[in-house]
Simulated assay, not measured.
Amino acid sequence: MERPDILFDESYCDQCACGEGLDFQFSFAFQPIVDSTDESVFAYEALVRGLQGEGAWSVLSQVTERNRYSFDQICRVKAVKLASKLGMDTMLSINFMPNAVYKAEYCIRTTLAAAKNYNFDTRKLIFELTEGEDLSSTDHLVSIIKAYQGMGFSTAIDDFGAGFSRYNLMTASPPDLLKLDMGLIRDIDREPNKQAVVNGIITMMSELGGRIVAEGVETVEEYAWLKGRGIRLFQGYLFARPGFETLPRPYFPDVG
């Protein structure tokens, strides 16, 4: 897929890779999103970590309104660079901050430059929105998702069902992937109310043409129930914990 050369800014990409614009540094852990149909890795999600593997909060607590744009841009570059270094040949899911994206077509330029510099196929990029992020305008988010999809990227909404469910977004611009919040997943095999909600979401995404990722899966019973409802994509400790600067190999339990 061809994209305008004007979007590439390799010098700025190199600056981002060095962490210019921030007074703190960070790295990533990667957790697989698995496909249960053939027991393969569909994607790895890049999860921000401190330089010694400290949790995400140690980094995110330093993000302010003033440095949010730089942090968002640097995250993308560093994730692509590390994924390429590790030889990742699956999809790569990168979390993004909608409030840091003033115009999708321009804010994507450093990501494209990083992919070009580090020889990473842009068709393997997923941009993942954390659903609970405070947004002043749903229209702004819709415009980002439509722009990313128009450029050939996949999009995902994380933590769906966590209390900020944006059904207006689902009608205006459905994402390619919808990640169920772990609060819905926990003990779903024995909680009828959760089962009813998830069954409804499964029907909705099927009719919208998107796919569901069940994240936060920790027990074989949860996995068996969700798989039995036709969900194929999973993420959680049952399969693999995040690996700091590594690509963990997943475990697949036998559920018949």
Rank of each mutant, 00 (worst) to 15 (best):
R3K: 09
R3S: 03
D5L: 12
D5Q: 11
Y12G: 11
D14M: 10
D14H: 12
G19A: 13
G19H: 09
F24N: 05
Q25A: 11
F26W: 09
I33V: 15
S36A: 15
D38R: 14
D38H: 15
E39F: 09
A43F: 08
Y44N: 08
Y44C: 07
A56L: 04
A56I: 03
S58Y: 07
T64G: 02
T64R: 06
N67L: 06
S70D: 15
I74G: 00
I74L: 06
K78H: 04
L82C: 01
A83L: 01
S84D: 04
S84K: 03
G87F: 11
D89I: 05
L92E: 00
S93P: 02
S93Q: 07
N99A: 09
N99S: 13
K103T: 11
A104N: 03
Y106E: 11
Y106D: 14
C107S: 12
C107V: 03
L112F: 12
L112S: 05
L112T: 09
N117P: 00
Y118P: 01
D121K: 10
T122Q: 11
T122K: 15
R123A: 15
R123S: 15
L125A: 06
I126W: 02
E128T: 08
E128P: 02
L129D: 01
E133D: 14
D134R: 15
H140D: 10
H140C: 07
S143R: 06
I144V: 14
A147W: 01
Y148I: 08
Q149G: 13
A156L: 09
I157L: 13
F160P: 00
G161L: 05
A162H: 04
R166V: 03
M170I: 14
S173G: 04
P175D: 01
P175F: 02
D176N: 15
L177M: 06
L177N: 00
L177T: 00
L178I: 03
K179T: 07
D181I: 05
L184T: 01
L184R: 01
I185K: 00
R186A: 10
D187K: 13
E191N: 13
E191Y: 08
N193A: 13
K194E: 02
K194N: 04
Q195V: 10
V197G: 01
V198Y: 02
N199A: 15
N199E: 14
I201N: 03
I201Y: 10
I202A: 07
E207F: 12
G209T: 13
Y223E: 03
Y223L: 04
R229Y: 02
G230Q: 03
I231C: 10
R232S: 10
L233W: 08
G236E: 04
G236V: 06
P242C: 05
G243S: 10
F244Q: 02
E245C: 11
E245P: 04
P248R: 07
R249S: 12
V255L: 06
